[in-house]
Amino acid sequence: MTKILDLQNIELYYDHVYALRGVSIEVNEGETVALIGANGAGKSSILRAITGLRRIKSGQIEYKGEKINGLPPERLVEMGIAMVPEGRRVFPFMTVRDNLMMGAFTRHNKAEITQTLEMVLARFPRLKERYHQAAGTMSGGEQQMMVIGRALMAKPKLLLLDEPSLGVAPKLVQDIARSIVAINRDEKVSVLLVEQNSRMALSISERAYVLATGSVALAGKSKEMRDDARVQQLYLGGEL
């Protein structure tokens, strides 16, 4: 299997406080990888480092064998990395359609964009109902579907999801989990999933990393981790 994303020894600081210390993570082509851990463990910082929203201090980030750290976010979108940010971040005063079209901002071929749009609408029929509604007026779950759809509009090879279950009704969490699985399977998109909801994340991923205080504490097959007592201990802030 070829690696699509490879993080080697990432260090990241906020002001003078470290957020990541020597994190190494890899995602293989076609795989779904989960990043779990308690609040403040550094999960979101990893995604910020990958997308170039935060500059890393040392280490190397490779995408398809190419060094990408230091590249601006817009270049990464063109290369095929799309991110669904934490807290959804819809464009509240734009319609659902305009929001989705913003996802395809870096693409120029109109016919292909329309094709992707139809795929997204077929995948999330709810969005079709709300097509001309301002995105800010939708429910949390609908917004979450829309931002996943918006990220898909860029036709990514790698999808980064930051806490997709946060602030979403429990019933809809399952829907979202199912659509992540489907996207990974049908669209041949590799997924890096950051989650607090470890049960959901472990159930839909193949491998997982557990983060604690800025470094990887555990790594392995998701199936095995589901029953691992150590994972729960880490969640409660314990040490190994």
Partner: peptide, 8 residues
């Protein structure tokens, strides 16, 4: 000495 991207 202040890092960039404070707003994100």
């Amino acid at each position: 000495t202040v890092p960039h991207n404070r707003k994100s």
